[in-house]
Design a protein around this nucleic acid. Sequence first.
DNA 1: CGCCGCATGTAATTAGTTACATGATTGT
DNA 2: ACAATCATGTAACTAATTACATGCGGCG
Lengths: 183, 183
Amino acid sequence: MALPHAIMTALLEDDMSGYELAKAFDVSVGLFWRSSHQQIYQELHKLADRGWLQCATVAQAGKPDKILYTLTEEGRDAMAEWVLGESRVQEGKDDLYVKLYNLSEDNANHLTAEISRRREHMMQRLYLYEKIRRRHYANPVSLPVRRKGVFLALLAGIRQGEQFLAWCDEALAMLGTIDEPVE
Amino acid sequence: MALPHAIMTALLEDDMSGYELAKAFDVSVGLFWRSSHQQIYQELHKLADRGWLQCATVAQAGKPDKILYTLTEEGRDAMAEWVLGESRVQEGKDDLYVKLYNLSEDNANHLTAEISRRREHMMQRLYLYEKIRRRHYANPVSLPVRRKGVFLALLAGIRQGEQFLAWCDEALAMLGTIDEPVE
DNA sequence: CGCCGCATGTAATTAGTTACATGATTGT
DNA sequence: ACAATCATGTAACTAATTACATGCGGCG
């Protein structure tokens, strides 16, 4: 399980509150390990209990207080150790493909629509990726080491996304040849 | 959650026991919705309780009895209905990318090894895909409708796999430029 | 006045993993 | 005798989702 480590990864860059973490997740490490704010709050408590994070309440003008989390030395050590462990292959789980196993004249239109929606969604995702890439990773060779790693993750996202778009097009073309049932 | 529907999908083709299902999963719909035999057995009980599956004990010569599961009409209806529902985007969860966010001189060698292992693993997976493709989906245009859907899922797997191999090569090349720390 | 953003959570449930358990037959 | 394959499960635990809950401040 990588959620605690994904959280600590985000905290490498900056100290953050649970709320800020949940938002940051949407545009950084959370792109590769999605989580809800509820789970993040729970996990933050656990990590603080284990001594991997330290927390401090910070008062803000015109806003509710927030609880800032900071990586401890122990946290950093735990991260370094975790990276060196064996990670197992993540097997895919996507019900779209399960649904495709059940393709018929009756649902071809629906599946076409679902794939179109997915395509649209992925285009938005790619737009985000490209924005990040242009901003921070335009020249990958000159990046410091850690940034190169982030770039490689980003690159994986971009490549996967582009490949998915191409597959959608193939799939939509093939689905287009299936006739609707006559009423 | 697509596990019950993945199970029923497998049972569209053939009546099977839990044990057979668990094995069949490895080379069919389970490629897109992995599950353990324990979970499958649990789910089979639930599905039988709900009336979507019917079960019958079958004696075998020289082997233990098995419990054969068959899709009921209600099960088929439930499947058809499920396909027409909205499926939500499956967000990726792969700790390899989380680890890459933590790339440093100290772990570059380890991550290189991990990516190599993943590459190897994916090549084996692709070999399986291609074997299935040659056997059953050599000429996709002439397939009956449902088979076209299965082919599209398979194609997605193949394309994703090929893309992943290419990414691994890019990543390995980049990681190769990082110097080890001096002891 | 009501909605949105900020900020933090608890509770209940479902899904998934890991470990453990049993017992028969076939091959070495 | 021992391991492997066939066959079915239970129990305990961890992870993740869904629903619910609260309260302040600013904006229209």
